[in-house]
């Protein structure tokens, strides 16, 4: 029982980086811009967050800065793929390598590497937190955990109910049609790319400020790529992406605990589990032919007005 509580109360913390990163990716890609740079936005977010904690000690400021860092880096990406219409695959990968170099340079110059800082406090909801079992799991998490759920709800609302969401979807499905009705393709793509990157930057900030409480080079550790798989698995839909992130969080929080009790399960099998889960999900999605795969129709294609395709 104690094992179960320890495990499940750690799930949200493990799930949030995946959830926020997948959310940011979906926001971006629904506008038709392929985003392979998630790992890079995670790194700049984590770097900015850690730097802010080490210099000011304010988590609030750290998260704002992390989101802004992601957004700032995405302006470069947006310039490349929206204005200059460069290949989105190559531009996305470039962003990753650029962020790796940039963040290690900044950390090295400022002596941030391996320096610990205090992180986030768990919120206390009084009576709710004291409920046995459910209290520590649901009502004793940090603020970003609850913010993540709110951001998902917000994104669903914006995409389903508002004009802005409709237009982002339109430029992602059929930019020519959207353009002909007077919707600015570039404007809405910029909006989606930058706000998506801010969310991934926030995910990165959570990785360093909320979880590890330390910066080391390359600390995103491939989580950006997992988030991309999650987005595909979720067919570019918000709630399934959150569910997928929670599944990943469950496995990530379970792995060290299985090891710490000395359960005789082969090590490499356990470490492989999240990736097996991803593979299975992707196979399952591609086998199910009755449903639309969810890929935005114009994904990955630069928009040039009046170009024949």
């Amino acid at each position: 029982m104690e094992f179960l509580i320890n495990w499940l109360s750690n799930v949200p913390q493990s799930a949030v980086p995946f959830a926020l990163a997948a959310l940011g990716l979906i926001v971006c890609e629904r506008s038709g811009v392929l985003n392979l740079g998630a790992e890079g936005y995670l790194l700049v977010g984590a770097n900015a967050g850690a730097g802010a904690m080490l210099t000011t000690g304010s988590p609030m400021f750290a998260f704002v800065l992390a989101a802004l860092a992601g957004g700032a880096l995405s302006l470069l990406f947006a310039l490349l793929v929206i204005n200059l219409r460069m290949n989105q695959v190559i531009s996305g990968l470039t962003i990753v390598f650029f962020a790796q170099g940039l963040t290690s340079l900044i950390a090295a110059r400022n002596g941030w590497t391996s320096r610990s800082f205090s992180g986030l406090d768990q919120l206390d909801f009084g009576l709710l937190t004291d409920i046995p079992v459910l209290g520590p799991i649901l009502f004793n998490q940090d603020a970003i955990v609850y913010l993540t759920v709110a951001l998902f709800a917000g994104a669903v609302f914006v995409f389903k109910r508002t004009e802005i969401g409709l237009q982002i979807r339109a430029v992602g499905e059929n930019p020519a049609a959207a353009d002909s009705t007077g919707v600015s393709v570039s404007l809405y793509r910029y909006l989606a790319v930058v706000s998506g990157a801010m969310l991934i930057g926030l995910a990165g900030g959570y990785l360093s400020v909320g979880v590890s409480k330390i910066w080391v080079d390359d600390m995103a550790g491939g989580r950006g790529w997992i988030a991309i798989a999650l987005m595909i698995f979720a067919r570019w839909q918000f709630w399934p992406a959150l569910a997928g992130a929670v599944l990943f969080g469950c496995i990530e929080a379970l792995i060290p605990r299985v090891a710490a009790v000395g359960l005789q399960v082969p090590q490499y099998f356990v470490l492989m589990l999240p990736y097996v889960a991803t593979l299975c999900a992707m196979v399952w999605v591609s086998l199910d032919r009755t449903r639309h795969s969810g890929v935005p129709a114009a994904l990955g294609e630069p928009y040039v007005r009046e170009e024949r395709r």
Binding site: N6, N10, S14, P17, L207, V211, S212, K213, I214, V216, D217, D218, M219, G221, E252, A253, I255, P256, R257, A259, A260, Q267, Y268, L271
Partner: peptide, 19 residues
């Protein structure tokens, strides 16, 4: 507890806390 990575503070923290 093995983390499966040399340089992943997130996994190292999870491992240490589980211990």
């Amino acid at each position: 507890v093995f983390t499966g990575a040399w340089n992943d503070p997130v996994k190292e923290r999870a491992a240490a806390e589980a211990l």
